[in-house]
Structure formats: C-alpha cells, structure tokens
Amino acid sequence: MLSVINAGAVEMKGWQVHVGLQYNELLVSADGAIVVGESGLPVSIGKNGMVFAGYPMTDLKIAIKITGDYTQIQVQITIKGTMFGLKSGTPMPKNLNLLNDGYKCPAAKRQGYFSTESMWRLID
C-alpha cells in the first residue's frame, strides 16, 4: 500500500509519485491510481520503477478547508504484484519521489511487520 497525504498549505493538483524498485517486479493491479505511460495491466516494471498518477482522485485538498476529512486530503494505492530475485525479507522500494513541484519525500521506511506486503508513505 502506498499512501499520499497532503499535509501542506497548498492544494496538490495532479499528484504523481515515482516508485523506484530494486527487483524485477510485475505489477498486477493498482487500485486508487494509474501507472503513467502504460495502457494496461499486468505490466513488467523492472528496476527503473514506475510513476503513479491520481485516478480517480487527481487532486488532494488541504486539511484546513475540509476539517480533517482524510478522504479529500489522502489517497491510498493498493498495489498487487509479484517480484523475482528477492532472496528473503520484505520488499521495499529503492526510492519514492513525489513529482509535484515544492514537495520532498522522506526516505521509505517499514511500518510494522508485513510478511508479504509493504507499506510506503509519502508525507509533505
């Protein structure tokens, strides 16, 4: 799961996230976003990663205007796929980058223990 939360003071129009990968992942589905430059799924991602864009929620509002309604300031992408080359451990992205101007992303980190899935978060 990838979560994008707009905790900033400016509405995030047309959000996009690059997810750099480290194995030869095969993406089967991504609920809550589309993969930019791909016409359908499944798709082989490889080690170059992929760019997710908002769909159906393309813009993320700011919290002060919507009084804490997370459905308008946050999107969660449920990612399903497989990978090849992982010897052991839990897969993590090599890097995450929010492609919108004016935002930086912290390093990816594991939240809790997941045996077969990872959670990635991008927070302004």
Results as ranks from 00 to 15, higher is better:
72 Q>P: 06
15 W>K: 00
112 G>Q: 14
21 L>Q: 05
12 M>G: 02
87 K>L: 05
30 A>M: 08
70 Y>T: 14
32 G>D: 14
102 G>I: 01
95 N>A: 03
116 T>V: 12
10 V>T: 08
54 G>K: 09
102 G>A: 00
75 V>N: 03
93 P>I: 05
37 G>S: 00
84 F>G: 10
39 S>N: 09
79 I>E: 11
60 L>C: 04
59 D>P: 09
92 M>G: 15
80 K>I: 12
92 M>W: 08
26 L>D: 05
50 M>D: 03
34 I>F: 09
78 T>Y: 14
82 T>L: 13
96 L>N: 05
88 S>N: 10
121 R>T: 13
22 Q>C: 06
98 L>S: 03
80 K>Q: 13
107 A>D: 07
92 M>Y: 10
56 P>W: 08
36 V>E: 11
32 G>A: 12
58 T>C: 08
110 R>F: 11
39 S>D: 09
20 G>D: 08
116 T>C: 11
9 A>W: 03
61 K>S: 12
88 S>Y: 08
31 D>H: 15
27 L>F: 12
34 I>D: 11
104 K>D: 04
50 M>C: 02
78 T>S: 15
56 P>I: 09
27 L>N: 03
112 G>W: 06
54 G>V: 02
110 R>V: 11
8 G>L: 05
34 I>R: 14
86 L>K: 08
98 L>E: 00
14 G>A: 12
3 S>Q: 13
119 M>Y: 14
20 G>C: 02
122 L>R: 03
70 Y>E: 13
87 K>Y: 06
20 G>E: 00
45 I>V: 14
50 M>I: 03
57 M>Y: 13
91 P>T: 10
59 D>W: 10
117 E>V: 14
74 Q>F: 04
78 T>R: 15
119 M>I: 15
70 Y>K: 11
72 Q>R: 09
33 A>P: 11
123 I>E: 15
111 Q>F: 15
55 Y>A: 00
14 G>H: 04
105 C>D: 02
107 A>W: 03
49 G>F: 02
4 V>S: 05
97 N>Q: 11
4 V>R: 02
84 F>M: 08
60 L>D: 04
2 L>R: 01
50 M>E: 00
63 A>S: 15
13 K>D: 08
6 N>F: 04
76 Q>V: 15
81 G>P: 10
40 G>C: 02
21 L>T: 09
34 I>P: 01
16 Q>Y: 09
64 I>E: 15
79 I>M: 05
116 T>R: 13
108 A>F: 13
17 V>M: 04
52 F>T: 07
30 A>P: 11
118 S>D: 13
22 Q>G: 05
32 G>S: 13
28 V>S: 13
12 M>I: 06
28 V>K: 10
55 Y>E: 09
123 I>K: 07
109 K>T: 15
22 Q>W: 02
60 L>G: 04
60 L>N: 07
